[in-house]
Amino acid sequence: MALSLGVLVAGCATADSHKMSSPYDKPGFTTMVEDGRLWVFKTGSKELADFQKKGEPAKQVTRIAAGPNRMTVKSTDSATIDAYIVQKAGFETKIEDGRLWVFKSGSKEWAAFEKSGEPAKQVTRIAAGPGGMTIKSSDSKVIDEYLAAK
């Protein structure tokens, strides 16, 4: 009986269900599964607070089968979905001009990139990233590790 109740509660769209955490959360992102779809918000954002208070927003972006286990992903804007999809533990990522920059978290290369932009030495892998995105980094080993990470 508890299992049946748990399934019912997880599928409900009440204000309380919007406060439940999700196993799909990533650093900087809060997620909720509703009706088999993954809602993604930047943690602490106005959009998240509005969703928790009011429910589904009138304006929303949907990416079918783009999430974990080919789950449909929804958010208030495509940039949030893109940033969520490319984020992996141990890496700093940034999407610029449709290309994904990848650096090890806390690395001097990431700090330099944040300060001055593109590094002089860079490696590019065309269409190797999520959704066929081009990946760039200052080191091919970082790209290999990123692609191997879950």
Results as ranks from 00 to 15, higher is better:
Ser140Val: 06
Ile85Asn: 01
Lys115Cys: 11
Asp97Trp: 10
Asp144Leu: 03
Ala10His: 10
Thr14Ser: 15
Pro27Phe: 10
Met20Glu: 15
Arg70Met: 13
Glu56Arg: 11
Ile85Ala: 01
Ala148Ser: 13
Gln52Thr: 03
Ala120Gln: 11
Ala49Lys: 15
Gly90His: 08
Ala58Cys: 07
Met1Tyr: 09
Gly132Met: 07
Glu114Ala: 15
Leu147Thr: 02
Lys150Thr: 12
Val61Phe: 04
Ser105Leu: 10
Lys46Leu: 10
Lys108Ala: 14
Leu5Trp: 13
Thr134Ala: 04
Leu147Ala: 05
Ala13Lys: 13
Lys136Trp: 00
Ala58Asn: 10
Trp110Tyr: 10
Ser75Ile: 02
Gly131Leu: 12
Lys26Asn: 05
Tyr24Ala: 13
Thr124Met: 08
Val86Lys: 00
Ala120Lys: 09
Lys59His: 14
Gln60Thr: 13
Ala111Gly: 04
Val102Glu: 01
His18Leu: 05
Ala49Pro: 01
Leu3Val: 10
Trp101Thr: 00
Cys12Lys: 07
Val7Gln: 13
Ile126Ser: 07
Asp144Phe: 04
Thr30Ala: 14
Ser22Ile: 04
Leu3Thr: 13
Leu48Thr: 01
Phe41Arg: 00
Ala111Lys: 15
Ala13Gln: 14
Gly117Trp: 09
Gly117His: 09
Trp101Tyr: 09
Arg37Ser: 14
